[in-house]
Design a protein around this nucleic acid. Structure first.
Length: 468
RNA sequence: GGCGACAUAGCCAAGUGGUAAGGCAGAGGACUGCAAAUCCUCCACCCCCGGUUCGAAUCCGGGUGUCGCCUCCA
């Protein structure tokens, strides 16, 4: 069995065949750090985080690069608005990005390059493009000459003349052809700039990803990923640049995450419905947000609303509850192995297979979740029917959820904390009262504990507690 | 105008030829001193019309609808 991924370039699912297995080189287009990230951005970073983790689960050695775009028009405009230097703005929002994304349990990339720290590589790449005849200089700007690259449009699946129909040239640009795009932008007054063979200026947006991925990985990338809106022009342009420089493809597999809508509407500033991660994590558990994002296939459009977060939370808590029960069941585990154990062992095996099959098939996280819920039911039945429990089997189930959670990270697997003596004594006293059928006292203690955030649940095998 | 995606129960959603996973919500029941949790049962003629096939949610054709890209955008 192999991992299959949908390649935007071929518009079909392909078996993942990395250039140098078990290494998988993986480049994700990172944020332009001019503002806080929103939930749409978060979807992209979460899903590629999960894909990265799944590849690791499948024992690939993943090397993840994710850049920061810290110089471009948006950066300059925002810095001017706020009276900051571009550098200060970038530092501020790189920090904010890292805080937000870490709250969402997205693990940091292995390499996090910044455009401004790779100007020499960018200049070198532009020079190569000029040398190879894929670019031209126009009054201090350098443009990629799309006419010199007949395959231009391959990722978008559009012929150049078709693309041309909607293209537009900004006043002040000196392109030969509307499809041409800027590689190096001549300095305007008050803008940050670097010296180059073509005079002072700064890199165009698309060139940085090509330059940095070529710098850190001198071979074709295995996977290049980003949001669906990056297909054109960003990724199309990256492909063209890399080919122009080296006559090779930038990446083998192109992955694109679908859009996230807010209440059925596109998120946009004009609609005023941009939801930042920063504000969302104040009211929602980040694990609920992860669960919501994983509940749909990553290429499908996904809607976002408070109701959907609530649905996700209820479902997620069902898994969390089961895990909590599982952890506390260990206390009374033995080593009997009978019919109940057989049933659960079989369910475990089924879930393991189904999870891997689902995820192997272009990262079908929704089906993967289905596998987790099916097993959860089997576990609940086991915990109800079989007693004493089989410790080894419980371990195996727990390990599976641990491994899977290492990919999805939607539940909290930390060992139950211990109670302080005072509370433990209260629980003890309540047990005593219940044994004597003094339910008034028992209920009073339960209420007391509830007020201090402890929920009690009576099971046939003793009383369990959990935090509210 | 060009290119493309999608349409499955109240809601979310999987399922690419063999009589519809899973979750949320809802109804009934079991368990419980009560509660919580849990379990059991119930809840879909897969947008429409044709076609291919022994057999289609799944393939083909034609509709209808929603959305996206072609312009900065995750």
């Amino acid at each position: 069995m192999a991992v299959k991924i949908y390649n935007t370039l071929s518009r079909s699912k392909e078996e993942l065949k990395p250039g140098n297995p078990p290494l998988v080189t993986f480049y994700v287009c990172g944020p332009t750090v001019y503002d806080y990230i929103h939930i749409g951005n978060a979807r992209v970073f979460i899903i590629f985080d999960v894909i990265r983790r799944y590849l690791q689960f499948r024992e690939y050695d993943v090397k993840l690069i994710q850049n920061y775009t810290d110089i471009d028009d948006k950066m300059i405009n925002r810095a001017n608005e706020q009276g900051l230097t571009v550098k200060t703005l970038a530092d501020q929002f790189i920090r904010a990005y890292e805080e937000d994304v870490s709250a969402l349990r997205v693990r940091p990339a292995d390499i996090k390059p910044k455009a401004t720290e790779h100007i020499p590589e960018i200049i070198e790449l532009v020079e190569r493009l000029l040398r190879n005849g894929y670019a031209y200089i126009a009054d201090g700007d350098v443009y990629f000459d799309t006419a010199s690259y007949p395959q231009y449009g391959q990722l978008t699946r559009q012929k150049q003349d078709e693309l041309l129909a909607g293209a537009r040239v900004d006043p002040g640009e000196k392109k030969r052809n509307p499809l041409d795009f800027v590689l190096w932008k001549k300095k305007k007054a008050g803008e940050p700039a670097w010296d180059s063979p073509w005079g002072e200026g700064r890199p165009g947006w698309h060139i940085e990803c090509s330059a940095m991925s070529m710098h850190y990985l001198d071979d074709t990338l295995d996977i290049h990923a980003g949001g669906a809106d990056l297909i054109f022009p960003h990724h199309e342009n990256e492909i063209a640049q890399t080919w122009g420089a080296d006559q090779r493809q930038l990446a083998r597999y192109w992955l694109h995450a679908g859009y996230l809508n807010i209440e059925e509407q596109k998120m946009s500033k004009s609609l005023g419905n941009v939801l930042t991660v920063r504000s969302l994590i104040k009211e929602h558990n980040p694990l609920d947000l992860r669960f919501l994002i994983l509940s749909a296939h990553y290429r499908s459009p996904l809607n976002f609303s408070d109701e959907l977060v609530a649905q996700s939370r209820s479902g997620r808590l069902r898994l969390q509850e089961m895990i909590d029960n599982l952890l506390s069941a260990h206390k009374s585990a033995g080593d009997v192995f009978g019919e109940n154990e057989e049933v659960l062992a079989k369910a475990l095996k089924g879930a393991q297979n189904r999870f891997t099959t689902a995820m192997d098939d272009d990262f079908n996280t929704a089906d993967g979740l289905g596998a987790l819920f099916d097993l959860a039911r089997s576990c609940n039945i086991y915990l109800k029917e079989a007693y004493p429990y089989n410790g080894e089997l419980l371990d195996q189930v727990q390990q599976f959820y641990g491994a899977v959670n290492d990919v999805f990270e939607i539940i909290d697997l930390s060992a139950p904390e211990s109670l302080d003596d005072e509370i433990a004594a209260k629980i003890e006293r309540r047990e005593q009262a219940r044994a004597e059928k003094d339910f008034a006292t028992a209920d009073q203690i339960r209420d007391e504990l509830l007020n201090s955030g402890i929920i009690l649940e009576d099971t046939p095998h003793g009383t369990r507690w959990k935090r509210k």
